[in-house]
Amino acid sequence: METQQMNWSALKDEAVSFVKTAATRIVDVERESLHIDTKEDADDLVTDKDIEIQRLMTDQIRKFYPTHRIVGEEGDHDDVHNDDTITWIIDPIDGTTNFVHQSMNYCVSVGIYQRGIGYVGIVYDVKSEEWFTAVRGLGAYMNGKRLPKRASVPFEQAILGFNARWLVGKADESLKQGFQTIVRDVRAVRSYGSAALESAYVAAGRLDGYMSLRLSPWDFAAAKVLLEETGCECVKVDGSPISIEDQSTYLAAVPNVSQEFLSRLQS
């Protein structure tokens, strides 16, 4: 299917309806008992509800768009390829640890791509009922209100999303030193426990940057569209372009904050 033949706004609206169905089910299952497993990292949780919600979304997509590719976090999915096939990249519950322990700060994340380019991004905070949506070239919105392009923020006034574990055990020593400098130089650091939400917060102006040393495509695919539509950068922590095909390091930030972040990390 050629790009010019797809009505991306209409597809976004359809995707929103799928997310609404998923979110309704998530609210219902919060009251049910959870079967909790871990992934390769013992602190990376997955529940039977993550898997159930992904299957629900996958069934909806395949019913209406049988030729589209689906890539999801919880197994039973296709691989990402930068080709003509329209690809849905979904995380049914981003922030599973929050879902399990706090019942807040988790979201449904859907990015729709073709040829490696993001055309639709949806991040829905289920508990706060906040919708972050974007269509390539048509702007980004929060609950229907258009988000402005992000303005520069002095680095010493920046608020960063940052997991403190990168300071103590999950990064090499040179990176830790750079992170310590960055943490000292900015105004404040926050950690919400959901990469998609924290990236959406950068687009919305609640954070000025967010960094992770290990994210998969479903963690950032939707938010990347939001970031691009609000003039933010989305790169690897060495400053190189980020690929939707692979797990990688990740920095989402206002452009000048991104530059200051990278210069301190690389010095």
Score class of each variant (00 low, 15 high):
Gln5Asp: 14
Trp8Tyr: 09
Trp8Ser: 03
Ala10Glu: 15
Leu11Pro: 06
Thr21Gly: 13
Asp28Glu: 15
Asp28Ile: 05
Val29Gln: 11
Glu30Val: 05
Arg31Tyr: 11
Glu32Ile: 02
Asp41Ile: 01
Asp43Arg: 15
Thr47Val: 02
Thr47His: 02
Ile53Trp: 05
Gln54Ser: 12
Leu56Gly: 06
Arg62Leu: 12
Tyr65Ser: 09
Tyr65Asp: 04
Glu73Ile: 07
Glu74Pro: 09
His81Ile: 13
Ile86Lys: 04
Ile89Trp: 08
Ile89Ala: 12
Ile93Gly: 03
Thr96Pro: 02
Val100Asn: 08
Gln102Leu: 11
Ser103Tyr: 07
Met104Gly: 00
Asn105Tyr: 05
Tyr106Val: 05
Val108Arg: 12
Val108Met: 13
Tyr113Ile: 02
Arg115His: 13
Gly118Ser: 08
Val120Thr: 08
Tyr124Glu: 09
Asp125Thr: 08
Val126Leu: 09
Ser128Leu: 12
Ser128Phe: 00
Ser128Pro: 01
Ser128Cys: 07
Glu130Thr: 14
Glu130Asn: 14
Glu130Arg: 14
Trp131Ala: 04
Thr133Asn: 01
Ala134Asp: 08
Tyr141Leu: 09
Met142Val: 13
Leu147Thr: 11
Lys149Gln: 15
Ala151Pro: 01
Ser152Arg: 08
Ser152Tyr: 07
Pro154Met: 11
Pro154Ser: 10
Ile159Met: 14
Leu160Glu: 02
Arg165Cys: 00
Leu167Val: 01
Val168Cys: 03
Asp172Ser: 08
Glu173Ser: 03
Ser174Trp: 01
Val186Ala: 06
Val186Lys: 06
Val189Tyr: 00
Ser191Leu: 03
Ser191Asp: 11
Tyr192Asn: 11
Leu197Tyr: 09
Leu197Asn: 07
Ser199Val: 03
Ala200Asp: 06
Tyr201Asp: 09
Tyr201His: 13
Gly209Glu: 06
Ser212Arg: 12
Leu213Ile: 03
Leu213Glu: 04
Leu215Ala: 00
Ser216Trp: 09
Ser216Asp: 13
Ser216Lys: 15
Pro217Lys: 12
Trp218Asn: 12
Ala221Lys: 05
Ala221Glu: 09
Val225Leu: 10
Glu229Asp: 04
Glu229Trp: 02
Thr230Trp: 08
Gly231Cys: 07
Cys234Phe: 11
Cys234Ala: 15
Val235Gln: 11
Asp238Lys: 14
Asp238Leu: 08
Asp238Arg: 14
Ile244Gly: 15
Asp246Trp: 02
Gln247Tyr: 01
Gln247Lys: 14
Ser248Gln: 15
Ala252His: 02
Ala253Trp: 01
Val254Tyr: 00
Pro255His: 03
Glu260Tyr: 01
Arg264Pro: 00
